[in-house]
Deep mutational scan, measured.
Amino acid sequence: MQRVNMIMAESPGLITICLLGYLLSAECTVFLDHENANKILNRPKRYNSGKLEEFVQGNLERECMEEKCSFEEAREVFENTERTTEFWKQYVDGDQCESNPCLNGGSCKDDINSYECWCPFGFEGKNCELDVTCNIKNGRCEQFCKNSADNKVVCSCTEGYRLAENQKSCEPAVPFPCGRVSVSQTSKLTRAETVFPDVDYVNSTEAETILDNITQSTQSFNDFTRVVGGEDAKPGQFPWQVVLNGKVDAFCGGSIVNEKWIVTAAHCVETGVKITVVAGEHNIEETEHTEQKRNVIRIIPHHNYNAAINKYNHDIALLELDEPLVLNSYVTPICIADKEYTNIFLKFGSGYVSGWGRVFHKGRSALVLQYLRVPLVDRATCLRSTKFTIYNNMFCAGFHEGGRDSCQGDSGGPHVTEVEGTSFLTGIISWGEECAMKGKYGIYTKVSRYVNWIKEKTKLT
C-alpha cells in the first residue's frame, strides 16, 4: 500500500490518463441519441435557420407576430419608411378606419389613436360632414345658397324668414311668412316636400332668348283662358290664391305678392273693366268669414305684352289694390325667389296649380277651390304637342294621358313649387288646347323671366 501511494504521488498524470480511459469505455446513459432527441424537440425550422439574422431580410411573422416588435424591426421587413409607417399605425392600436367614419364618399386613412378623412370636392370637416359648395344638395341650405369668396357655403332665406341657429334652416321672422300653410287642420295635408338634388348652379339658368321682337298675326285659340281631375282644397291650404270678379264672377285667378299687390295673367284683364279681388276665398257660393274683398285701382301688364300681336306672350300683369290686405292664416303671400332659384325650383319637376275653373272641358265651374299636382314636361315634348308657338318664356306641365289639367277660369292662378315646406311661385296658368285632352298640356308663363320686374313694381313704400 505504501508503494502504491508513492507511485500516485510521483505520477499524477498517469492516474488522470487511467481515469479518462475508464470513462470513455463506459456506456453513456444520461444523453439520448440524435434521433430520439429530435422526437422530443420537434420544432419547425425557421426561415433563416442556421444563418445569422443580421444578414437576412426581415420576416413579418418572425419579427412582429411571434413577439412584439419595434418600429426598427418592422422597418427591416418593409425596407421602406412609408410602408412601415402605414403598417405601424394599425399594428400599434388597430384600424381606426374600420367603422368607416368618413361621410359623403370620403376616404379614410388610419393613424395612431386617430384617423384622417380625405374629402371629395365640396366637403370638409373631420368626417367630411361639412358642405362647402352650393353645387351639392344646395349646400344643405333649406332655401338659398351662395358661395363666399373663400368658396364656403353661405345660406340665406327669402323675405319674412331668418336663418336658424344651425345656419342652414329657415324659420319665420314674421307672423305670416310667405308660402307657408298655417291653418292647423290643413298642415297635415301639406304636399310632399321637395329635397334639393345635386345641381350645376353655374349652368342652372337656361341660355334662352326671349323672342321679344317676333311679330306674329293673332292666333285663334280655343278655350285658351284655361282644375280638371283635381281635388277639393281645404280652407287655408292655398292662402296665396285669390279669385278675380268682373263682368262675371271667378273669371280668373291670381296670387298675393304682398298686402297691396296681386300677380295674374295679362290676358285676364281689360282696361276700363272694374275688377274686384277676393282673398281668403274657399267656396265661392258661401260666406265663410275668411274672405277679404278689395278693388283694383291700377293694372300693370308687362311692358312687352301686346294682345294685338299675341294674347299669351309675356302673359303676366300686376294688380294694385285700393287697401292693403290683412295677412292671416287664410290670406298669405306666395314666396318669389330670384331668377336663378325660381328656375331651379321649376326644374324640380312638379308643381301645384289651383283655381275655381271648370271641372271638365266646357263644363261647370268649381264651387270649392280645386288643386292638382302636375309634372313638368320637357321642352321637346311640349313643342311636338301643339302647332302653336311655345315661346321661351312659357313652359308645359300636365299629363300625356289627359284627364287632369287646369281649365277655363283658372287662368292667372299660381303654379307653385314647394321647397322644404315653403311654396314659391314658378308659373302662372296661361293657356292650353281644350282641357285635359290626351297628348295636350297646360301652358304656363315662366315666372323666372319676370321676377325682377315683379319685385321692382310691387315694392311697398
Rank of each mutant, 00 (worst) to 15 (best):
V451Y: 05
L367D: 12
R191T: 10
S385E: 06
M65Q: 12
V153Y: 08
G363E: 14
I262A: 03
K438H: 15
A192E: 11
S350D: 08
V368D: 04
N283R: 12
A436N: 12
K362W: 04
E286N: 10
Y47K: 04
G246T: 08
V257I: 04
A233F: 06
A26P: 02
I297P: 02
F196N: 14
G50C: 04
I17H: 03
G398L: 03
L346N: 03
E285H: 13
G402M: 15
N80V: 09
W261N: 00
N100E: 09
L376Q: 06
E456V: 06
K51E: 13
Q96A: 15
S204V: 14
T458P: 01
E82G: 13
Y91W: 04
L425Y: 00
S406D: 15
G246C: 03
D249G: 12
V353C: 03
S11K: 15
D378G: 08
G21K: 03
C335H: 01
G94E: 12
R3H: 09
S406R: 11
S423M: 11
G351M: 02
L460W: 11
K457F: 07
N306Y: 05
E270I: 09
W356T: 05
E10I: 15
A307G: 14
T190R: 09
C396Y: 01
A37S: 14
E323L: 08
S187Q: 11
C396N: 02
H34P: 10
M65W: 08
T426K: 00
R43V: 13
H400K: 12
Y47P: 12
Q90P: 09
P324M: 04
L367G: 14
K260P: 00
C145N: 01
D95N: 13
R373K: 15
Y441L: 11
T16Y: 12
P414I: 13
L23F: 13
Y352M: 04
V353Q: 04
L376A: 04
G246I: 04
R226P: 08
D200N: 09
A173S: 11
D223K: 07
A164K: 09
V419S: 05
C128I: 01
T426H: 01
C108Y: 02
T342L: 04
L460S: 07
I297A: 08
I336N: 01
N100W: 06
R162W: 06
W261E: 00
G160H: 04
N452Q: 11
V269K: 02
I136W: 08
Q216W: 10
I112R: 12
C128T: 01
C157F: 00
N452I: 04
C102A: 00
W453D: 01
P177H: 02
R358G: 12
P235F: 07
V359T: 13
K68H: 09
